[in-house]
Design a protein around this nucleic acid. Sequence first.
DNA 1: CACCGTCAAGTCGCA
DNA 2: TGCGACTTGACGGTG
Length: 431
Amino acid sequence: MLSFLYDNERRALMSIGYACLTVGVPNTSQKSCMLKNASEENLSKIIEWNLNSLENIIDYNIKNDIKLFRISSDLIPFGSSTANALPWWDIYRNDFLRLSEKIKNSGMRISMHPGQYTVLNSPSEEVVSRAIEDLNYHAKVLDSLCKGAQHKIILHIGGIYKDKEQAIDRFIKNYERLDSRVKRRLVVENDDRSYNISDVLEIGGILNIPVIFDDLHHQINPPYSKRDEVYWIGECRKTWKEEDGKQKIHYSQQNPNKRIGSHSESIRINEFMDFFNRLDTKVLDIMLEVKDKNLSALKCINCTSGAKNIKVLEEEWSRYKYSILESSPANYLAIRKLLINKKEYPAIAFYNLVELALDEKIIPGNSINAAQHVWGYFKDVATEREKAVFLKSIDEFREGKTSITTIKNKLFKMAITYNREYLINSYYFVL
DNA sequence: CACCGTCAAGTCGCA
DNA sequence: TGCGACTTGACGGTG
């Protein structure tokens, strides 16, 4: 079947992924601690917890065919600080080995991205040496998980300090101080205030390292030269060598209710498809930066990987269902109707309706209706006491004495207790 | 158990 | 020169 070939071919070309955390995936939370609590005992507990969460994330990615993922810099608390003297790569060697097998066998591409506080071009030697230590830490995590140089560390250039030329020179000079294990993975990215894509291409060109194009940063902080994103993505492509793997870009959308640069709650699919269709090649990986994480990754994957079986959308529907019922009973019915014909694959239409529904203002009566539907999964097994508690909380919600979140949390606990997998995977508890 | 101030990192604008 | 704002998600103390 042609669509099958197309599907596989397209998938081999492009991976779409998400960063650091998941939404609605059980047992994937991260822990951290404050400096004053960074005892060896406490740190060990947290690292163990975080590695277990990471394994669950990787399992989830494999199960859902998500082949691009950014690991949180907080995986090891104070990983680049003397506050954490644990040889964690050694202590948890077996865990890292198991994880690296899973990553390798699934063909997943991993990355890491030190935040805005890792500044290689600072005039302060203290700050620079901490940045170098931090990059060493990131390389150590990646080396423990994946061998190839296609698994990248993404870094911003840093500050300006009232003299951009000198600041760039300092970046270039300090780059040379980096360990080869960092250098082979290091790529640089444009930011939303100081270094635009033209600046970063210049720096990447001098250092002969790949450049990541970040679309939202580019919209906020474009170079003087007026060229469109497709042009700049093409320029960045030239910086990616064979051993670096596929070109990688960052994509996010503005949150209309927050300050410039804030990431949107979800990827608006029409806007994304417009961008996707304008790309002059599909041979690149797209890292999404968005609040709803894996949810948007699945959305974009399902809308760009050619025709799939409608089962994919039915699975998504099973997870979105009760959120949609809560926010928009009308769209709930519209989506059911859309998915009746099992020979079609109306992915974009489906996500359009989901977005429309979730944008609606929630009416308390609809919240109660959805909660009662979810309660239906327990009505045969719940104890009298559980039933009384539920009915009472619905009454309290009606009177404004409790929040729907509290009710949802109780329902989620019951989903765990009675092992209702269908509900445990539902976005109802997180959207 | 829900809520909200605090933490951790470095830069930059403004007194 | 020094202080507050900025960012992000989890902690940790309060009610």
